[in-house]
């Protein structure tokens, strides 16, 4: 993780993003970009927004592997949900379930909750401490989530952030 707590690091990051998005590199535009990123850092500092939560999660091989695995799960779940939308004979059986998150850090829990929501068929409704209330579209998606594979994988990837 890169810490953006220092204003200079934040500015460097913002200016890099600006350079990437701009695509025009004339002196005038570069000066304007410099000024606008400095202004953003100034405003963020005045609003006391520069704190611990500002950090960049680097893409490491382990994390990337998790993303690819999640993408595969998302594709499978999408096809299942789409079939249930288009074919009236396939029933849905919505239900609310509660699952426990076993992640240690806040970032890990956020990753878990967002991953649950990202996979169609399950939506995180509320979070109280480490208990999540999840709405599942069918019995199968609910059973899948309770099986805890996603939880285990997030816990695994959490160590590598």
């Amino acid at each position: 993780m890169i810490n953006l707590k220092h204003p200079f690091n934040l500015w460097l990051f913002l200016f890099a993003v600006w350079l990437m998005l701009s695509g025009h590199y004339t002196p005038l535009l570069l000066t304007l970009g410099l000024l606008s990123t400095l202004l953003v850092v100034f405003i963020a500092a005045r609003a006391e927004l520069i704190d611990q939560e500002m950090q960049v999660v680097l893409i490491k091989p382990g994390v990337l592997l998790y993303w690819f695995w999640l993408a595969g799960e998302i594709v499978k779940a999408n096809i299942d949900v789409c079939r249930r939308i288009l074919d009236p004979r396939l029933p849905i059986s919505p239900r609310m379930i509660r699952v426990r998150a076993t992640q240690q850090t806040e970032l890990g829990r956020v990753t878990y909750a967002n991953s649950i929501t990202l996979v169609p068929g399950t939506v995180t409704v509320s979070v109280e401490g480490d208990m999540f209330t999840v709405h599942a579209l069918t019995r199968e998606t609910a059973e899948d989530l309770k099986g805890g594979e996603l939880d285990r994988r997030v816990q695994d990837v959490e160590q590598r952030f």
Partner: peptide, 19 residues
């Protein structure tokens, strides 16, 4: 449009947002 209640419809929104 088709799903019967609000919480089920959220899953359909997820389909749009992801795949």
């Amino acid at each position: 449009l088709r799903f019967p209640d609000f919480y089920s419809r959220l899953h359909a929104v997820s389909v749009c947002d992801t795949l």
